[in-house]
Amino acid sequence: MQIRSRRYSPDKRRIRNSVYCLFVCLPAPWNLIHGVFLLLVVLNKHRFWFVALTAIIALVVWQAVAWIWRLPAFILPTPFQVAARFWQALMDGSLIRHLLITLIEVLAGLTAGVGFATLTGYWLAKSRPAERLLSPYLVASQALPMVAIAPLLIIWFGSGLVSKILICTLTVFFPILINTIVGVRAVPESLRELVRSLHATPAQTLRYLEVPAALPVFLGGLRVGATLSVIGAVVGEFVGSDRGLGFLINVGRGQYDTALVFATILTLIALALSLYYSVVLLEKLTLRWNRNYSSQSRS
């Protein structure tokens, strides 16, 4: 005997309730909020399908727009044209070649930027005078857009990899720096007293207390930095380069090969997303103790 018939599945009930809340009792604001909440619960449970569905809808709309207004391919290529161009660029190796260049720039810039920013941040977090002295310069450096400095760096360091890595490094530096300072400053004084009462050396304090305590905030900065580093590399390639995804976009634009521009942008998005989710994965692995990050809910 089937006790729980499909009609009474909690999701169906939630959807029905949300429709009821949203439309039947529209005037009451509480109903509106509750209805949206119920919808979000259902959507969140099936978020893969939600993302897939919205992506398909977007593609259909895109295709429809290109057809209805009969736009030429150099203004708006259809999804099929973009897919074909993507495949072609993939097969002749050009996409992979340029992707690898950008990836190297991003990874090298990220490593250098994270390294410098973490060291500087730790120093500034420990030394108030150093922070007071240097922070005006650091903040002022953020007021300058990277596109304004990029030409200078290219003049000084050439149009090869070095200038791009440098631009990447500078882009990543600030968010990591700030989050390192905030993270180290936020180490609870009571835990500092604990390790002090156990005669911990400075190195032990760093390893057993400061690193793990600052890690959540630091990784938050790394999430931002990872995505920013892609922007940094592409900005550098735009300004002056003969390689990389930014260069490929320039090529596509110059030849009115708009499908190639689209294909390259999609590759860039994939690159940024995979960097971002690598950091998220790192958070999941290292911050299991923290309720906000652990995958299974432990409430």
């Binding site: 007293e193 005669h199 057993y208 207390l209 890690l215 103790w289 923290n290």
Partner: peptide, 25 residues
């Protein structure tokens, strides 16, 4: 030292917290 509040390291399990003084020593 037993502090007025428990003062445990949230990123260490119960066992790891108890072993901390030995690790530091």
């Amino acid at each position: 030292f037993v502090f007025q509040s428990a003062n445990l390291m949230p990123w260490r399990t119960v066992l790891q917290n108890i072993l901390l003084p030995l690790e530091l020593a």
